[in-house]
Amino acid sequence: MTHLQFNLDMDLLKESVINSNLDMVIKSALVLVLNEFMEKERDDYLQVAAYERSAERRDYRNGYYERELILGIGKLKLKVPRTRNGEFSTSVFEKYERCDQALVLSMLEMVINGVSTRRVTHIVEQLCGENISKSFVSSLTQKLDPIINEWSKRPLNVMYYPYVFADAMYIKVREHNRVVSKAVYIASAITDR
């Protein structure tokens, strides 16, 4: 089992606890821990500690870049360490990518259920405190197009349906700059399995 040693700035952590609300305390502590964890990952990758000379060195430190990580408690701004050759990659973002995927999947679910892109952006802003563009939501829905096309073009004659129910409803749609009534056909079936 890997042993991790964290060097935290306790004065900064203490100041964050005393002068802020609980959310800010949790965010500050999480930022400190994740930044230190990424630093340890870089040391393990390089096979040397900071300011240490060794023949086993794989690469050299090359500063940091900032990246945001969105979690349930909000947005965290992290300092991601990097190396000169750029081959080092931290696992922090892979571990917490599930949160981002859950957000994206919930946005796709909203679009599938007929929520407008403008309303989706408003809902995400209310839930996460994050602004996302309508074009981002539109690009997500474009990823659904191949799946929907494959589903709609699947053959229906490969299975026996003893019961088929068909219905239609009329809705108003805009077509060639005027509103017309169009039929939406609905069919459902039950298999014998």
Rank of each mutant, 00 (worst) to 15 (best):
L108Q: 00
N21M: 05
R61K: 13
D59A: 09
R174A: 08
N19K: 11
S28W: 00
I26Q: 00
E66Y: 12
L108P: 01
H3R: 07
R193N: 14
G129N: 07
H176G: 06
C99R: 02
I123D: 05
V31L: 02
N177R: 14
G63D: 11
E150K: 08
I171D: 01
V80G: 03
N177Y: 10
S16P: 03
I132W: 01
S116R: 07
R119F: 05
M24W: 03
E56A: 01
Q142P: 06
I147G: 03
G63H: 03
G72F: 02
N85V: 07
A189K: 04
A189R: 03
V111Y: 07
V104Q: 01
L12M: 10
V80Q: 00
S181K: 09
K134G: 04
N113Q: 11
V173H: 06
V17W: 02
K134A: 07
E109I: 15
R98I: 06
Y161L: 12
I147Y: 09
V164E: 06
K172I: 10
I147V: 10
T117R: 02
L78D: 01
S139C: 08
I123Y: 05
Y60H: 10
D100G: 12
T2G: 05
K40I: 13
N149R: 08
L105T: 13
V25R: 00
S91R: 04
I112H: 05
D100R: 12
P146E: 05
E130A: 06
S133L: 09
M110A: 09
Y60I: 14
E56S: 01
K172T: 15
T90L: 04
R178A: 13
M159T: 15
Y51L: 06
S116F: 11
V124P: 00
R178Y: 11
Y185G: 10
L103Q: 00
Y64F: 10
P81M: 02
S116Y: 11
N7F: 11
R154Y: 13
P146F: 03
K77L: 15
P146M: 01
K182Q: 10
L46N: 00
E125D: 14
Y161C: 09
R57A: 06
L12H: 08
L76M: 06
M10L: 11
V104M: 10
E68H: 11
F165D: 07
